[in-house]
C-alpha cells in the first residue's frame, strides 16, 4: 500500500506540471498580445487576467462548479464528449488551475515582452525575418529569464492552491486530493507529525522557487540594460 501522502504529492506535481504546460501554450501568446497591442480590448483583457489575484478562490470555484454542472452548456458539451463530468475530477482541477494561475504566468512574461525594443523587431523584419522567426530567435532568447520566472511562479502557485481545489475538486484520494488538502486533513484529524512534515516541505519548496525567481529577476535587470547605449 502506497503512502497516501505520496499519492497526493504525485497528483500535486502532475497538476502543477500540466497547468504550467498549458499556460506556456495559451499564456505565451496572450502575454505577447497584451504587451504589444494598442487595441482597446487590451484594456479589458488585462484586468480580466489579473482577477484571480484579488478574487477569493471560492468565488472562482463557485462559478466553475456552475460552469461544470451538466445543466450548463459547457458542462453538457463536455459530458457528451467525454462521458464524465468535470466537477470533482483531475481534468476539472486542471481547468480551474489554469485560470487561477494565469496572472502569475502572464504578468511577468508580459513585462519581459514589453522590454523588447521595437527597433530590434523592426531590424529583424527588414532583414527578412517573419513574425515566427522574430519571436523564436529574438524575443524568446531575450526574454529567457522572463519565461523561467513566469513558469516557476505558475508552477509554485498551482502547488499552493487550496480554496479553488476544495470547491471544484473535493477531496478524492488518487484523483483530486492535492498536498494542501491533505495537510488540511492531517490537521483536522490531529496528525500533527505528518502535518509538520508536509507544511515544512511546502515552505522550503516555495522559498527555494522564489529565491530562484528573484535571483533571475536581478540578473535580467542587469543583463541587457546597458547594451549599445552609445557610451
Amino acid at each position: 500500500m502506497i503512502d497516501p501522502d505520496l499519492v497526493s504529492l504525485t497528483i500535486t506535481l502532475k497538476l502543477a506540471a500540466v497547468t504550467t504546460l498549458i499556460l506556456f501554450m495559451v499564456g505565451t501568446p496572450l502575454a505577447w498580445w497584451l504587451a504589444r497591442t494598442r487595441h482597446i480590448a487590451g484594456f479589458l483583457v488585462e484586468p480580466l487576467v489579473a482577477l484571480p489575484i484579488v478574487l477569493p478562490p471560492t468565488v472562482l470555484g463557485f462559478y466553475f462548479l456552475i460552469l461544470f454542472s451538466p445543466n450548463s452548456g459547457f458542462g453538457k458539451a463536455w459530458t457528451s464528449m467525454t462521458g464524465s463530468t468535470l466537477a470533482f475530477t483531475f481534468e476539472g482541477l486542471v481547468i480551474g488551475s489554469v485560470i487561477y494561475s494565469l496572472p502569475f504566468y502572464v504578468q511577468p512574461l508580459q513585462i519581459a515582452f514589453s522590454g523588447v525594443r521595437q527597433e530590434l523587431l523592426d531590424a529583424a523584419a527588414t532583414m527578412g525575418a517573419g513574425p515566427m522567426d522574430r519571436f523564436v530567435n529574438i524575443v524568446v532568447p531575450i526574454c529567457r529569464s522572463g519565461f523561467v520566472v513566469a513558469s516557476t511562479l505558475a508552477f509554485a502557485h498551482t502547488v499552493g492552491e487550496f480554496g479553488i481545489v476544495l470547491m471544484i475538486g473535493g477531496n478524492i484520494s488518487g484523483e483530486t486530493r492535492v498536498l494542501s488538502i491533505a495537510l488540511f486533513d492531517h490537521v483536522e484529524t490531529l496528525q500533527y507529525a505528518r502535518a509538520h512534515l508536509m507544511a515544512a516541505g511546502l515552505l522550503i519548496f516555495s522559498f527555494t522557487l522564489l529565491l530562484i525567481v528573484y535571483t533571475l529577476n536581478r540578473r535580467q535587470a542587469g543583463q541587457f540594460s546597458r547594451s549599445d547605449s552609445g557610451s
Binding site: 527597433e119 530590434l120 523592426d122 531590424a123 532583414m127 527578412g128 531575450i142
Partner: peptide, 20 residues
C-alpha cells in the same frame, strides 16, 4: 508587402543590435 519581403536594409538611430 511586408517589410521582410521588401529587401530594404534599415539602419536605425540606435539600439538595434540583438543584445543576446
Amino acid at each position: 508587402v511586408r517589410p521582410e519581403m521588401r529587401g530594404v536594409g534599415f539602419v536605425f538611430q540606435q539600439q538595434q543590435l540583438f543584445p543576446h
